[in-house]
Design a protein around this nucleic acid. Structure first.
Lengths: 203, 203
DNA sequence: GCAGAATATGAGCGAACCTTCATATCGGAT
DNA sequence: ATCCGATATGAAGGTTCGCTCATATTCTGC
């Protein structure tokens, strides 16, 4: 029979189109935020750059903030993925080398789109999906915490402190163009913090 | 003669009023940014909260952004003043104690209005008064650099790195409510960075 | 082919909001 | 008391922008 039950390997142009639109909108949002900041970020501009009508945009996103939320999620997931992969590659390295590797990954990620990363940090807080709601962000912290725990370098609090410290250091350095040695400076900060916090396990 | 040359100790109600209005507007802007974020920050709301008409606001500020710029300037100056005073009090302290004192000052400042401090950081960048134009911000970096230089702990780059690192660490910690030990954690980060950067003076 | 469902379009509504300006009020010198 | 410049006021103009909805187009099963 030329027509089998017709269930499994169907083409799905509709859903594929939908996914492409969603991706285009998110990419457009990222581009605009990076190039123009929050000011130029309006739904009409995003739709235009994404090559879809404003109506279509609203078919896939309930509102402007949802676009931001999706972008934040995507960036957080990409960063976590990169970090997880890097942690896996630290197996045979000493602590210094391992931290240096992670520092490199963090710098690379933030440096690829510095303005965007900053804006998203701030907006994440504004959108209120700050606590708990942001699964990918929590996973990033967990990834670092796992790395620290394996080598008995610190706990969850150290992981979060390092994460925020790194963001501040990298963003600031990129702003002023002080990229030389940046990975090493970040490694100093991280290793220094860890060394002293272990020396004095506090109360 | 009951009427001396009448030059020196004149009351100046007009200028006093003007100064009071400017101060009220800036304070209103700070309050609104802290409480409502950038969304609630509009000229009408600022004028209303300051207790002046929108027209008067525009008599003293050429536009919305000028209010932000003034606020940024004021906050930067307050922080620099607090820091300078603290540095002066570190004279007889060891490095550890001195850094701890400065860490305390930084935490206190940022913690008093955490949301505001963050927003201003971002807006400062957006307004483009980022490089050079912000004298007070540069002075803060210089204050830290001077402290580091006196004790041969580091140079200008270290000062800026520490400044940004501290901002990130403090903001992140305040966001998640991890204030316990915060001053000490910040001190670890700073001392750790300095120790390692001195060990390896790099290229 | 065709019918109907899914999807795309974009003109335009409504609200928010920055800024201006014609008018009113006030402060101080005479 | 009176006048004049300095200052204060807030209604309204004009613009930007988020979002809706009536209409058009495309896709899929029959």
């Amino acid at each position: 029979m030329p027509t089998p039950p017709a269930i499994a390997p169907r083409k799905r142009p509709r859903q594929a189109r939908a996914a492409a639109t969603v991706a285009a909108v998110i990419e457009a949002a990222a581009h605009i935020l990076e190039a123009e900041g929050l000011n130029g970020f309006n739904t009409n501009a995003v739709a235009a750059r994404a090559g879809v009508s404003i109506g279509s945009l609203y078919q896939y996103f309930p509102g402007k903030d949802a676009i931001l939320a999706a972008l934040i999620r995507q960036e957080a997931e990409a960063f976590d993925a990169a970090l997880t992969q890097a942690v896996a590659r630290t197996g045979e390295l000493g602590t210094t080398g391992a931290v240096a590797l992670l520092a490199r990954v963090a710098v690379r990620h933030q440096a690829s789109r510095p303005r965007l990363a900053r804006l998203l940090d701030l907006e994440e807080q504004r959108l209120g999906l700050g606590r708990e709601a942001d699964a990918a962000g929590a996973r990033t912290a967990a990834t670092i915490a796992r790395f620290l725990a394996e080598r008995r370098l610190g706990g969850e609090e150290a992981a979060l402190d390092i994460l925020h410290m790194a963001r501040g250091l990298i963003d600031g350095a990129l702003d002023r163009g002080a990229v030389e040695n940046l990975e090493q400076r970040l490694a100093w900060a991280i290793l220094g913090y860890l060394a002293l916090s272990r020396q004095a396990p506090s109360a």
